[in-house]
């Protein structure tokens, strides 16, 4: 009897430990909304070339014919993530929408020299950047899922930078207009200051709104963690090094910080 009891305890513990060990290997399913816009190229590339799969993400792309429908689907939890124009996303955030920006995307480049000089034209182009957003309240395993998602987008960006023409060719069947090389600037970094400029241009900070309202919806730390993971795998890659050189990430401060990096709190943490 005693032996059977011990065996049962052993088996139970074994199951629990295996479950814990497999938590990091867990696969997540995501529905990812996108628009017929070349600015979504990194998302389409990540799906087309298996970068999501490599991060153990099973991503189903869902095409929307309007921003409003896409953002509404995200807010309602019908999709877990999406690539939508920054201006529309920021307006939703200002209207208390529970969306989090986790990565930047493609921004159309000005076609004329005059447009480069014109502040309002620049602002308008910035607002058209296809940023990646999640609805953290609806996304299972949010932080880990989001980090893997962003890492896949960083990998897609890497490919886009190294083989732009070929990469854009490979996703043309997703888009009604063939994206032209050089017509878009791609940047996976969800740079707070870039969005803050658009936020200001659109006059979205209202009286009584917390000063950190926008920042509470921009998850740069997820991008920093994802970039860190990508660099760990491929430290000499020039595209990744360039991304790292411009990212504003909070530096590690502590002995053994790397080992602790993925933990959210310590034993004594409140």
């Amino acid at each position: 009897m005693m032996l059977i009891r011990r065996l049962l305890i052993f088996l139970t513990l074994g199951t629990l430990l295996c479950g814990t060990a497999n938590a990091g290997q867990r696969s997540f399913q995501l529905r990812f909304g996108y628009l017929d816009d070349p600015g979504s190229a990194p998302v389409l590339l990540a799906a087309e070339h298996g970068y999501f799969k490599r991060e153990r993400l099973s991503v189903t792309l869902v095409k929307f014919d309007s921003v409003d429908k896409g953002v509404a689907a995200l807010a309602a939890g019908k999709i877990e993530a999406g690539a939508f124009p920054a201006g529309d996303v920021l307006r939703t955030i200002a209207g208390s929408g529970d969306l989090q920006i986790v990565a930047g995307g493609g921004t159309p480049m000005p076609g004329e020299l005059l447009a480069e000089l014109d502040r309002s034209a620049q602002s308008e182009l910035r607002a058209r950047e296809m940023v990646t957003v999640i609805n953290s309240g609806k996304t299972a395993g949010t932080k880990e899922t989001a980090t893997r998602l962003v890492k896949a987008l960083i990998r897609a960006h890497q490919q886009l930078q190294q083989h732009e023409t070929k990469s854009l060719q490979s996703i043309k069947h997703h888009l009604s207009h063939q994206p032209l090389p050089g017509a878009y600037r791609f940047d996976p970094n969800p740079d707070y200051y870039r969005f803050a400029a658009t936020w200001e241009d659109l006059g979205l900070q209202k009286p009584g709104m917390r000063r950190d309202h926008l920042n509470s919806h921009v998850y740069e730390e997820i991008y920093c963690d994802a970039l860190d993971r990508a660099l760990d795998e491929d430290p000499q890659n020039e595209v990744l090094q360039k991304l790292s050189s411009v990212a504003v990430c909070i530096p590690d401060c502590c002995p053994d910080a790397k080992k602790r990096k993925n933990k959210t709190s310590k034993g004594a943490t409140p």
Binding site: I250, C254, D256, A257, R260, K263, K266, A268, T269
Partner: peptide
């Protein structure tokens, strides 16, 4: 006193009023 493994975690706790 509460020890944290990184500045980012600590400041996130401060921001969350923990």
């Amino acid at each position: 006193l509460f020890q944290f493994g990184s500045a980012a975690e600590g400041l996130a706790a401060l921001k969350a009023e923990k």
